[in-house]
Design a protein around this nucleic acid. Structure first.
Lengths: 311, 311
DNA sequence: CTGTTAGCGCCTTCAA
DNA sequence: TTGAAGGCGCTAACAG
């Protein structure tokens, strides 16, 4: 009866279901998992849960997994490599069917991965990856995004574009600079290293760099940025100097944070496909779990240029 | 040996541990849970994971629970009452030791709760609650927060304070208006209903309301708001009308969203204790699980006034 | 077609 | 001190 047999009369069935409900019976998923050798649970390890970026990512992951009857066991590595390491033990003990992780520290990756592989637990990296580690991942195409942003400015006729860069050690920073340079190159323009300013990517950095550039009478008619915060800082500096955006100087950001659309000058920027990153990671993981795809999958999502009033 | 006995020589122990590591052995937590009748897992049901507010909340929850060896099974109700209902079945099947929930729909609450109670699973409501349902909850004191914001303006000598309100049907909106009125009353000032403007609480609303108020030559020297977005809109309207903040008009927001500190005029606002909400909810739940606190606990956290340059 | 049973891996109890 | 056995609740296989 409990397995949906046919030879039970409607009334009996109804009665039994009523009793089930009344008793509050629910099949014990633990026992089932133990017996079946699968928990229908995915470990999701996030480098920093309180970062708004990952809210959408998790939402994407959860939506796909839930449809397939999977649950999310959530861990917050809190940008701490040691905590990330600890998590793996729990993941193994709890016999998760798979892992999605936004990794913190590259130095751990291979060791941790081999742990999972030994236990035959598939894993997908999200948003970050390491070149020499054989594992599926899904990332956004930073080079392309930055290329699109720069190209957008070039199409508007700008020739000297100040670039507000991020921390040089981040691969993301490097790729975005690449994209900027590639666009210039494609338009037959030289890339002037004086126009490229690395920073810690805070709003104050954008503000200071632009202030300084204006003071030095550095020649530029547009600004591209590693992220939206730098662009916000730039907007403020420009305004303080009585410059109009986009008439005197055009500005593009990167990420499309919540505030980009409602800042005093709505910001043209590049939207990271946050939700889609989660969705794709979950899909890849499921295909690994089902054994459909033994080989490693690399998915690179396309970011999208969002044109607003700052250009 | 595996249970940490004393009578094993150091070398043997080391050797065995090495083998354990080599084999990739990890105790099966499922079997343990089945046997022990507790899963060391907490169901966390969030009304909308992609809302940045809940990132910090989850972080707080996770930090406390992890210390005690608990894991977080995360669900996203996605502001959908039906999905919220479905989740409970899974929670029961998976035999979670407790539940923390930011509930979506009041109409479901009592039915769902009795389901949990029947299974003897303690539950804590977070951020929202329903008056007539006997369950522990942790919320922030909206009345107090709004009182503090308004009082701050009153102390600065403002007497006519425009209030940008939120959606009237939200208890949060109502409580914040209460706080505003209470402060006025305490300072012996009448509360002029013309100065209270409900809205959908978007930035445009703040902008339009202030524009309109200025156009109508409504008399006010300060603005208090239901949330930071309304305040941002107000700032923009003031600037467009050539008014200086805080010299001509002072402005306070509510929530302390990420951008409040870096907006063009850094915003005085009321900080919601997001992280602390999570921490408290987790602590209460743990005390229920341990049987330390049979009775219902109600925790009301104090929000904090953050003074910046807009006042 | 129905009912019984073994065993998933652990912890606890009891016996040796 | 150590070892063996029972049972948590489920499913799959097998016997009646």
């Amino acid at each position: 009866m409990l397995n949906n047999r046919y030879d039970v009369s409607q009334e009996t069935r109804k009665r039994i279901l009523a009793i089930i409900e009344e008793l509050g019976y629910a099949p014990n998923h633990l026992a089932r998992s133990l017996r079946m050798g699968q928990t229908k649970t995915i470990g999701v390890v996030i480098s920093d849960v309180s970062n708004p970026f990952f809210g959408s990512v998790i939402s994407g992951i959860e939506n796909i997994l839930r449809e397939e009857g999977y649950c999310v066991l959530l861990y917050n590595a809190n940008e701490d490599a040691q905590r990330e390491e600890e998590v793996f033990k729990v993941l193994l003990e709890r016999r998760v069917d798979g892992v999605i992780i936004t990794p913190v520290d590259e130095s751990n990756f291979s060791a941790l991965l081999s742990l999972l592989q030994k236990a035959n637990i598939p894993c997908v990296f999200l948003a970050r990856y390491a070149k020499n580690i054989p594992v599926s991942y899904v990332i956004a195409d930073d080079l392309l995004g930055s290329f699109l942003a720069t190209e957008h400015l070039l199409k508007k006729g700008h020739k000297r574009i100040l670039y507000l860069g991020g921390p040089p050690f981040l691969t993301t920073s490097q790729e975005r600079i690449q994209g900027y340079k590639k666009a210039l190159e494609q338009y037959g323009l030289p890339s002037d290293e004086n126009l490229i300013k690395p920073s810690r990517a805070k709003m104050e950095d954008g503000y200071k760099i632009v202030k300084e550039a204006l003071f030095q009478k550095l020649e530029f008619t547009a600004i591209a940025s590693f992220n939206d915060y730098l662009a916000f800082g730039a907007l403020r500096a420009l305004r303080e100097n009585g410059l109009s955006v986009p008439r005197d100087v055009a500005v593009v950001g990167y990420d499309d944070v919540e505030f980009a659309s409602i800042s005093w000058v709505p910001l043209t920027t590049v939207r990271m496909p946050k939700y889609e990153l989660g969705v794709e990671a979950a899909k890849i993981l499921l295909s690994h779990i089902r054994g459909e795809a033994e080989s490693i999958k690399k998915v690179v999502l396309k970011p999208k240029l969002i044109v607003r009033s700052s250009t």
